[in-house]
């Protein structure tokens, strides 16, 4: 397989890999490293790639496994600190920023979700995958996916309401 062919296959979904990695690892740098790692792995498997019927799903599963491994590994100890990646909300022009801020809250709230809910929410609401695809990617039963998704959505809604009611001033 030539490089251009490989790129044609990989480029359409490389952002999805990155976003999933970032959702799980939170840190931008970590996510970039993970994505590069996955792309290198894919490239080294390029000869077998023609036999996969869905390269994107395969790559997404790889990303998921890779990130979960990262989180489990010792190195992940460093990842706990990355909450400082978020921009500080207490800047001036509060009212103008408020609308934008509540969008950022969602990111923060999502970061607190359990990994499985994070992934389901990411794959469904951000990447708009169909349920059957998510089933394959995450190796979950359809009902489990719906439960996780519903729970994740409701949690985000509740937390978002809390923030709205208390305000951030």
């Amino acid at each position: 397989m030539k490089q251009t062919e490989f790129l044609n296959i990989v480029l359409p979904f490389k952002d999805k890999l990155y976003r999933l990695a970032k959702r799980l690892l939170v840190s931008t740098e970590e996510a970039e490293d993970a994505t590069q790692e996955i792309l290198i792995k894919l490239w080294s498997k390029k000869n077998k790639m023609e036999s996969y019927n869905n390269v994107e799903a395969f790559a997404m599963t790889m990303t998921k496994n890779f990130c979960l491994d990262r989180l489990k590994s010792k190195q992940a100890g460093n990842l706990k600190l990355v909450h400082s990646n978020y921009t500080d909300a207490s800047t001036s022009l509060q009212s103008e920023l408020e609308a934008k801020d509540s969008i950022n809250w969602v990111e923060r709230i999502m970061a607190e979700l359990p990994e499985q809910q994070k992934m389901v929410l990411q794959l469904r609401d951000v990447e708009q995958y169909e349920y059957e695809e998510i089933e394959k990617l995450l190796d979950m039963k359809p009902t489990a996916i719906r439960v996780a998704l519903s729970r994740a959505r409701k949690t985000v809604r509740e937390k978002l309401m809390e923030k709205h009611n208390y305000g951030i001033a």
């Binding site: 490989f6 490389k14 976003r19 590069q36 792309l39 290198i40 509540s102 969008i103 978002l160 309401m161």
Partner: peptide, 26 residues
Amino acid sequence: QHAPLFNYFSKAKKERFTKPVPLKPR
């Protein structure tokens, strides 16, 4: 109250992987 949620998803989808695909150089 639900707007931030849906707007966040639209925004999150716009995030791009900006690093080069690291195949050739390495």
